[in-house]
Computed example of a mutant assay.
Amino acid sequence: MTTVRVSSAVMTHPKRLAQARELADLLRLDGLALDPDPDGPPSALRTALVAWAAADPARAGHHLVVQDDVSAPPTLLELVGRAAARFPDEALVFYTNWHARNGGAARLAALAGAAWVRAVPDEFTPSLAVCLPAGTAEEFRRFATGSAERHDDEQFSVFFRARGRMSLIAVPNVVEHIGTSSINGHAAQGIRLAVCPTAAEDAGPLLDRGRVLEDPGWIPYMRYGEGYVRLVGQERGPDGGRGHHRWTDALPATGLTEDAVRDAMSDGMPKDLAADVADRFGPEFAEELWIHCLLLGHRAAAARATLASTDEAIAPAALGDTPGGAPAAPSDDVPRDVLDRLRNAAVSTAGPAGLPPERRPEAGPDEVGLMSALAWTAVDAGERLPPGRPGRPGRPG
């Protein structure tokens, strides 16, 4: 597989200097980008500008910036270099939060059989590990210099929207967030992990040859124990699309009715599994999780059909069903078991990601297993739902 030269930097604060040095050594990154005003008001963008200024087109065609609170395999630079060779003009994102709209897009893409998905324009761009063409890195640095924004992830999205093309998100995540502390004020979000944690040996063929879901359509996601839907064209709303549509309000735009959802739940939600999840996290959460995953499965089936009808089509499945029951067609020569593991990773994080932040520490291996088992029954039921006829959405909640 072709690779390209990628320069790199770890953006860090003096409080985490030892951690950043250890990470740079492990990943063989070029150096550190220190906060130029460590005693000033918290600002990730201030440090990011230093990191992106280290890009040098004469030395490397692409530049990778990672934040200091991540873990990643020693082969990260190689994986990034191959991805940059495949998509030389794209902004590439290698970590996505499990509870964000873009996390929902990645989870949907995984179930549809894709390895890359186009980010939505109405949310921050996850910035824990981003690779830009060197020229784009310099454009971003100039664009963001002097901004009053302190969040680099928000400024990225402003920049990409202005260019008319959002980033490409790697669905398999080899980069993982570590810890819950936050210099930039995100600690209240609690445990924040990758949406599709993936071993490097699986990520390689997926990133090299996996399909791209350019248009995920409407996207189910969960936040603080409740299910929502990111609507198509939502970014054109008066608030820039930042509002949240509860699934009940968004159903007309999906083509489904609440009666159809409730009937599917009555027929397909196993009472024993639902009761086990309800015993631990409450009946409301168990119901919201099941409906969220029902919508996820329904949308994934449509996205899979879209992929299959394009030149970037996924070949028809011929090797039986995946652990969730619905076939995920192999993507060129990506091994079937690799796609299966990606799907399982996506579903395994749906439950803990959907919990309120204060309750995520309660999700140990047994709880995650129960939530995953319940989630799969909903995904399977959603993939069997007939397509509806989209109407107009309700108001954002």
Score class of each variant (00 low, 15 high):
Thr3Phe: 00
Ala9Tyr: 05
Val10His: 00
Leu17Phe: 08
Gly31Gln: 07
Asp35Trp: 03
Pro36Cys: 09
Leu45Ala: 09
Thr47Lys: 09
Ala58Arg: 13
His63Gln: 13
Leu64Ile: 08
Leu79His: 01
Pro88Arg: 09
Glu90Gln: 15
Phe94Gly: 03
Tyr95Gly: 00
Tyr95Glu: 07
Asn97Trp: 06
Gly103Thr: 10
Gly113Thr: 07
Ala114Thr: 01
Val117Phe: 01
Pro121Asp: 03
Asp122Gly: 07
Thr125Gly: 01
Leu128Pro: 01
Ala129Cys: 14
Glu138Phe: 08
Glu139Val: 11
Phe140Lys: 02
Ala144His: 01
Glu149Val: 09
Asp152Gln: 08
Ser157Glu: 12
Leu168Glu: 03
Leu168Gly: 00
Ile169Leu: 15
Pro172Trp: 04
Pro172Met: 04
Ile178His: 08
Ser181Ala: 14
Ser182Pro: 11
Gln189Pro: 04
Arg192Gly: 01
Leu193Ile: 11
Thr198Lys: 04
Glu201His: 12
Gly210Trp: 02
Arg211Trp: 02
Trp218Pro: 00
Trp218Leu: 10
Pro220Tyr: 07
Pro220Glu: 09
Pro220Trp: 02
Arg223Glu: 14
Arg223Leu: 14
Tyr224Ile: 10
Gly227Phe: 03
Gly227Val: 12
Val229Leu: 15
Arg230Lys: 14
Asp239Gly: 14
Gly241Arg: 00
Gly243Val: 07
Gly255Ile: 13
Ala260Asp: 14
Asp263Lys: 11
Ala264Asn: 06
Ala274Lys: 10
Gly282Ser: 09
Glu287His: 13
Glu288His: 15
Leu294Phe: 05
Leu295Ile: 07
Thr306Cys: 06
Ser309His: 10
Ile314Asp: 04
Gly324His: 12
Ser331Glu: 07
Val338Trp: 07
Leu342Gly: 02
Ala350Lys: 05
Leu355Glu: 08
Pro356Phe: 09
Pro357Met: 07
Asp366Trp: 05
Asp366Lys: 09
Leu370Asn: 00
Met371Tyr: 06
Ala373Tyr: 02
Ala375Trp: 03
Thr377Phe: 08
Gly388Val: 00
Gly391Trp: 07
Gly397Ile: 03
